[in-house]
Design a protein around this nucleic acid. Sequence first.
DNA 1: CGGTATCCCCCAGGATACTG
DNA 2: CAGTATCCTGGGGGATACCG
Lengths: 117, 117
Amino acid sequence: MALKMRKNQSGDVPYNCPLSECMAILGGAWTTNLIWFLSGGPRRFSELKNDLEGISAKMLTTRLKELESKMVVDRKVLPTSPPSVEYSLTELGTELVPAINAIVEVGHKIKVRNGKL
Amino acid sequence: MALKMRKNQSGDVPYNCPLSECMAILGGAWTTNLIWFLSGGPRRFSELKNDLEGISAKMLTTRLKELESKMVVDRKVLPTSPPSVEYSLTELGTELVPAINAIVEVGHKIKVRNGKL
DNA sequence: CGGTATCCCCCAGGATACTG
DNA sequence: CAGTATCCTGGGGGATACCG
């Protein structure tokens, strides 16, 4: 199912372990998938919207902006008509890929092991 | 900040990529940290509550039950008085650790690189 | 100690409509 | 095509109180 992420009411940081920094990036719903698809190479807005089947334009924009502000994703506007925008992983974003791959790998193991969670 | 995870309204699976299985496990708020602390060895309820500073008993119970039902965590009641309960990672849970370590590692890189996200 | 029960807040994110 | 604006909702999860 889709996952949503929220801050808690206090707004404080509960992550008191080494996971904080990276989870702050990977935390948002769709985020890991977004990075996963971008890891295949630059991708345009509408392509990503297709990749992430079911995501709303609003959330895609939100996540992309968030990742852009965190220097994970690069946004490049191509001077075409109609305008097209290309998103790609920054160097930092690329560094997240191994972690995501590790997740994918375990996910696969789980799937193989017992077709169902 | 603390992260909350929610299902979407449709209840459908948006994860249309290899991340689904594992993220379904790691998705919950506190979950990665919980597994992280358990990776150090068996731990009791109150110890975990201390580890995960700020978590409510309710959520800790919820997450532990969820992970137990997903065969990630094992719950063992020790016949002591007062009663104590020991939680530990199952074999499956142990397989999640490398993925989490990968996340930790990237998080550390990020921290080193620019002390702030 | 190791939980469960209740109450309720809150915002991530979906749906829809519109723009340059 | 690539968004932005607005409205709304549901369930995650905090706070608190209580139990065996």
